[in-house]
Amino acid sequence: MRYCIGIDLGGTNIAGGLADLDGRLLLTDSVPTGLPCTADAIADRIAMLCRAMVQKAGFALEDAAWVGVGAPGSVDTATGTVLYANNLEFHNTPLAELLTRRLGRPVFVDNDANAAAWGEYCAGAGKGSRSMVMVTLGTGVGGGVVLDGRILTGCNGAAAELGHFVIQQDGLECNCGLRGCFEQYGSVTALIRQARDAMAAHPESALWQLAGGDAANVNGRVVFDAARSGDATACQVVDTYIGYLCVGVTSIINIFQPEILCIGGGISRQGDLLIQPLRAYNAAHGYSRGTGPQTNVVAARLFGDAGIIGAALLGKTIN
């Protein structure tokens, strides 16, 4: 059977999976990344994981069409070189070459957010479209852009840093060195910060009860659950947070005008409470409003599997 191997390389774990050439997962597994260690040691662990999964599935490694890797940082996709990934201490690391040497299969490498977006495009929320932007809301704001069936990488492998355009001049300081970045207002980290500030001002809020009396327990689900229960403080937090998302997401739509804009990350499971306001705001304020086909704002479908599936399909060209 022809199949492909996908690797989602993280700072804590290396997650992997086998998939058919349409992106249907056959099995998954993972191993610790084992930092701090050398690039060679990481390549050894990836190769070990690949062989273990292939053996578990009863396949032959020679039947793997390719191996795809989603890696953090900026990547030269033409050579499979990770130009820079600070958490892995990769600097001009020829990851594709290291893995080809160990596995004897073609290896494709891209940024991990691009890989997740490619997964959603090929096998998830963007399937069947020609263009899709994925905005992933988590600790930060990331994502990927697929235009006419190709991942947008830019001249230096660092395109689609969707969390780092300014939506608030002279706003909150961002870890990228700018102020007022979308990430500082639209990430789940930002939502939690906004909720904790509101809790401090409103000790009567149901947020305290849902968080077990400890603001450290607040997460995105707690905030949305409290809002669904009708808690006024939580509703105000959610409204403010979604307001920032509306501005950021509509700005992204104005730039790319994709068929699909996909919201990823665990918070996308909040469904219509999150998605409907984004659709309504874009319909009312987007540049192309009322002029023909409009971007469809949707929630991700693949969730935690997007990175593995997308990596597995990096060798697939959409014509």
Rank of each mutant, 00 (worst) to 15 (best):
I5C: 02
L152Y: 11
C37R: 15
R193M: 04
T295A: 01
S187L: 05
G142Q: 13
Y287P: 01
D63A: 07
D214I: 05
G212N: 02
A115D: 09
G149E: 08
S74Q: 12
V54D: 11
C235A: 12
V146K: 08
T250S: 11
A64R: 06
G248F: 09
L137R: 10
G124C: 05
V249M: 05
C4A: 15
H202Q: 08
V141Q: 14
G138P: 02
G186F: 05
N86D: 12
D63E: 13
G23R: 04
I151L: 12
E259P: 03
L25V: 14
E89D: 15
R102C: 01
L26S: 14
R279K: 14
S30D: 15
L137D: 13
G157R: 03
A280F: 07
V297I: 15
I167G: 12
S268K: 04
A96G: 04
C122R: 14
R130S: 14
V188H: 04
L245C: 10
A125D: 13
C50T: 12
L88V: 09
G16W: 01
I42N: 09
I275P: 02
R289T: 14
Y84D: 11
A52P: 10
A216L: 09
Q194F: 06
V31R: 13
A116M: 01
D225V: 09
L302V: 06
A284N: 08
D40K: 09
D22T: 14
G266M: 04
N175V: 14
E173P: 03
L88C: 09
P36E: 13
C176R: 09
G213A: 00
E89K: 14
I46L: 03
V298E: 08
A283Y: 00
L191E: 01
F108L: 13
V188P: 00
T189P: 04
I42A: 03
N111G: 04
T233H: 03
G271Y: 05
L9H: 07
R193S: 06
N282H: 08
A115W: 07
N87Q: 11
V54T: 13
F165Q: 09
R196T: 00
A201F: 01
T136K: 05
Q194H: 10
N156W: 12
T291D: 12
C174G: 11
G80Q: 12
L103W: 01
L162V: 08
T100C: 00
A234E: 00
L25R: 03
T139Q: 03
L274A: 08
V54G: 08
F303S: 15
G119N: 06
A85V: 03
V249F: 02
V218T: 09
V222C: 03
A43K: 01
G6A: 03
S268T: 07
C262R: 07
Q257I: 08
N319L: 14
E161W: 03
Y121E: 05
S288P: 11
F182Y: 11
S251E: 10
T81K: 07
T81I: 07
G10F: 00
S131L: 08
I5K: 07
L152R: 03
W66E: 07
P293I: 13
G271P: 02
E89L: 11
T79V: 00
S129D: 06
